[in-house]
Amino acid sequence: MDINPIVIFFASISTSNIVLTNFLGMCSYLSISRDLKASWGLGQAVIFVMTTTTMLNFLVYKYILVPAGLEYLRYIVFIIIVAAFVQLIEMILERYMTNLYYALGIFLPLITVNCAILGVALFMVIREYTFLQSLAYGAGGGIGWALAIVALAGIREKVDETKIPKGLQGAGFALIVTGIMAMAFIGLSGIANIQ
């Protein structure tokens, strides 16, 4: 598994985008993408949480869980670490970026249960990444998620001005757009591929 971390970084933004190829992190992806500003805020939060927790999870996994033979506990440990970090970020936002804190509201704690974050940590283990590879994968995954949600929010804001059939409004339309976006991202597969 000696893929260049830079390749992993770009692949996880584009061709291996965590939302568009793995369909992880869908709940907040669908519910926050109505508003461009809020989605960018959440995207930033996810980038930060994903990068930091992937690093932390890697260190804890490699230097604590593996030597102690406790790999089977990784689900629990990863989740606790993510939960604690999200709490920390909530406090930081409340203090220094109050507007963003209010804009995200209830959705910030939702990052705790954002499966994309746990997904990235688990893929890192399955694919036996090194520290640098994990860092690239975490940061790329976060940026990819943010890119996808901001793109969707941009499209939804434009589409809001048009008439959509009643049955397709909201999540229905968002999922169709996501599907088309996922196909478009496959077009980038010549750039980098890790799977």
């Binding site: 804890v60 604590i64 869980l65 102690a68 406790l70 506990l73 629990i76 440990v77 606790i80 604690a84």
Partner: peptide
């Protein structure tokens, strides 16, 4: 060891 390690991680984060 399992209990200690899990507790240690928990205590650190708390």
């Amino acid at each position: 060891t399992t209990t200690t390690i899990i507790t240690a991680i928990g205590v650190f984060l708390a």
